[in-house]
């Protein structure tokens, strides 16, 4: 019996998405080492990568990178299918939905910072709604909204500025293997 090899065709798109997803996963894993004053408040550095990908390659690639980040990142830190995973997934899906709308804002007036802040608020919104519906079936979670909103505003702005700075430079795409 001859051993058969299954060759999966890998496109340049796949390499690019994998490369950015790896960067996003690295950032989100590194971020878990940071102490957090309240569960759910963290910088969300991986979203910088998502914003860069969104601006350079469009929403489809950004969605791939974001969702790969959530799944693979949770596998790395051992949170896969834990409550935190579903919260992150809800946040990622909401922010992707908002980014899909935000990319149609006139680019003359709205840059990555707007997209970042909107996505950050969507992230918090998605997580809070899921937490309310599933983990804490009590309106008490919404009392924390001001704290989460403040964090989303601050980190959304900072991440957006970093993304804007990265995007201001031309892409130095390494050759695809």
């Amino acid at each position: 019996m001859t051993p058969s090899t299954i060759e999966l065709p890998v496109t340049a798109d796949d390499y690019r998405i994998a490369r950015y997803a790896a960067a996003a996963i690295a950032l989100s894993v590194a971020e878990t080492a940071l102490p957090s004053p309240l569960p759910g408040i963290k910088p969300g550095l991986a979203n910088i990568i998502v914003l860069v990908v969104l601006a350079r390659y469009g929403w489809r690639d950004a969605a791939w990178v974001s969702l790969l980040r959530v799944v693979a990142g949770s596998l790395v830190i051992g949170q896969f299918l834990a409550p935190g995973f579903f919260l992150a997934l809800a946040g990622a899906l909401c922010s992707l939905a908002v980014l899909a709308a935000a990319q149609h804002l006139p680019p003359r007036f709205f840059g990555p910072v707007s997209a970042s802040v909107l996505a950050a608020f969507a992230h918090i919104g998605g997580q809070l709604l899921l937490a309310r519906a599933w983990l804490v079936p009590h309106d008490g979670v919404f009392y924390l909204l001001p704290l989460f909103a403040t964090a989303a505003f601050l980190f959304g702005t900072i991440n957006g500025l970093v993304a804007a700075r990265l995007l201001a430079k031309p892409s130095t795409e390494p050759p695809t293997p």
Binding site: L105, P106, R108, F109, F110, G111, P112, V113, S114, V117, L118, F153, T157, G160, L161, A164, R165, A168
Partner: peptide
Amino acid sequence: APWRTLLRPGDWLLL
């Protein structure tokens, strides 16, 4: 470039 040049008018408004 300095940080503020990365913000467009709409960004300021939104912030």
